[in-house]
Design a protein around this nucleic acid. Structure first.
Lengths: 207, 207, 207, 207
DNA sequence: GATGAATGAGGCTTCATTCAT
DNA sequence: CATGAATGAAGCCTCATTCAT
């Protein structure tokens, strides 16, 4: 995906327009129909092409998923990293982690669907892709673990539950929304605020 | 699924043994490989049959998924209902909802995989099945909404967030574990305890 | 190929009829159109099937070629071996090798086309098959080398040319006929007699 | 093929360099992979072009094969004719035919592969090409028949076998070597000498 | 009840070919 | 001259499904 982060240039690369279009289309379809449920014909038709034409841009279906997954997790990684960097100097871990959650959720619900596809496809992937994807996921996990560890050491975070489990809890609270939330009709930012609130303080009022 | 809940009857129906075996096998495979990724031949072979034989017991692949999904959500519904019933007279909403969470999670990780399949398959279903499944899901949601509404009205629950959203938050916290938790190696009950803890009180200590 | 050598039984194996039919059809087509030029659809149609049905009997196109090649070279090996065995006690190497040549040619032009396919396909095979086929060919070559070595040691054979080259010369003289000879219109035995004659004594009269 | 025989002209046609390159590349690939096994993309890549570019020089794949075949048989025809011409005045038919055989073999193993491709491709050709190619082959056959007829009438050649069959025997002895002989590692001239020897006098010593 | 055998539809992929640039 | 990009047809193969046995 060559132009997902560009800001000013109107067109960096005319040539890769179709390639990017295929990726965007594929991401959306993968997100909605799963790996096997997304056929190349489906991708092609939705991108205004014939199935065979895809092979001018990609060598296989697997190459497409792999790139979709990669863009998805990379977008998340970069966005969370940037969000965190802005609040790095502060010592308020609630704020840092809150910004991370909001960044993650904003990306997951952004137009391209890459990140949503990534979060959803994992269990359906063919073995040939799983390995690379797992590595990328681990790295993203480490980013979160760093944040959580710092917060824990500062004493603000609950101590009785392991960092790994805390990370999974937060991921679940964020990603499950893909299953039901309609970002066309409601504000993702408002959703993210509520997620932050519940993740931080729970559903029950303190006694 | 004809015999998943019976206790005392020694055999309801000898004939349906194979049918149940097919369903159990299918549930596990659906859970792991998704809808399109699970072929009838795969189900048949794993059940010790040939593909054609399945059609003596079911009329189509869709009938199989539909029943798997139905058993899955029904098991959840029944289990949660029973768990709640035992604590119904008490006024402690923390306990009631805690029991509900544990019941849900125990079923999701139970051997048969029906409930896990249900939670995972939703996005990959063909349209022909979606409607019935959506109805069943709604009913299960209402069960939870009842619990949450009572707790909210009692004043124990956070008031500033809608019941529907609270439900989704809890579902996310419970179901995401399917994606990573290995129930062969760790205790589901211990996992459930931590989920209850975090869902109730959040990851941060009260200030 | 399960029944290529049976004599009396009318049907050994009803089940493998289709399988054998596919092989026979494939052999003929491979012989005439080469490896890539022979499509599964072509094989299927000529065998009265639809393309997909072939996969009930074989797992891939390569499995089909491999078996065709195997039957082809095995038929040759067995036929030549038997022919030689009958004249083994004699010391007349002209007769032994003459019988070998006639046996090879009779098999190459027999109805099934397996041997003809084998002789022709070699250069077009995918790498995945080449290895096994090469092994089989080498064994067949060794059979001939044995015959030629014996004849050479007896003093009857020309000494100034290596056995390996003699073998290739004889193979060429026999197999080239596949390219032009029409076994429907002329006698293969008469052809074989002339081949024996020329191979043994050359085209020029002794001076 | 526009410049395969020129000696003196420095450049007939600069433009046709690429055309010739394509033909040379195609000849080699056709020889090794057969007709269907040789794709235009393969030819293009090996010639340092993109597939589409070939269509500036040729109107179709068939035109390419046709020209490759034509160059192949023409090279043979010319080479044999020239070889024979030099010895025409002599009455020694052994020498004349020996020179013809050596000329044929030298061309078949020469770098360009056109003749080798011709000898090998025959059985895999699409109908649309077969007719023209057959005509060319017949003419080449007549050249040989002339030589053989003269030798036969002089009494030197074996009389009991038809000229047509003698021709096929000699062609087989020459062409089969394409299947196994590695001209990079051994001398084609030495090979040709042995072929001449065996073709003329056979594998057995005269009794 | 179950299986062997077959099929039509459709999946991923390759190919010869076209054509605007 | 050459290429980038696309296409329709076809290639190999898999799948849900059928049905006689």
């Amino acid at each position: 995906m060559s132009d997902i982060f560009y800001d000013k240039e109107i067109k960096i690369d005319k040539k890769s327009d179709t390639r990017d279009l295929i990726l965007q289309t594929a991401a959306k379809l993968f997100r909605d129909h799963g790996y096997s449920g997304t056929t190349l014909r489906l991708i092609a038709n939705n991108a205004g092409l014939k199935a065979g034409s895809i092979y001018y841009h990609f060598t296989s279906k697997e190459e497409i998923v792999d790139e979709v997954l990669n863009v998805g997790i990379t977008s998340l990684h970069v966005a969370v990293q940037e969000a965190v960097a802005q609040a790095q100097n502060k010592e308020d871990h609630r704020e840092i982690i809150g910004l991370a959650i909001k960044a993650h959720m904003r990306v997951v619900f952004s137009k391209a669907d890459f990140s949503a596809a990534n979060m959803r496809l994992h269990s359906q992937l063919p073995d040939s892709i799983l390995d690379q994807e797992t590595v990328r996921r681990l790295k993203y996990g480490e980013l979160w673990d760093g944040l959580l560890l710092a917060a824990r050491q500062s004493g603000e975070l609950r101590q009785d539950i392991g960092v790994g489990f805390l990370r999974q809890f937060i991921l679940g609270a964020m990603n499950w929304n893909i299953e039901w939330f309609d970002s066309q009709r409601s504000s993702v930012d408002a959703l993210a605020d509520r997620v932050v609130h519940l993740v931080f303080d729970g559903v029950f009022l303190p006694k």
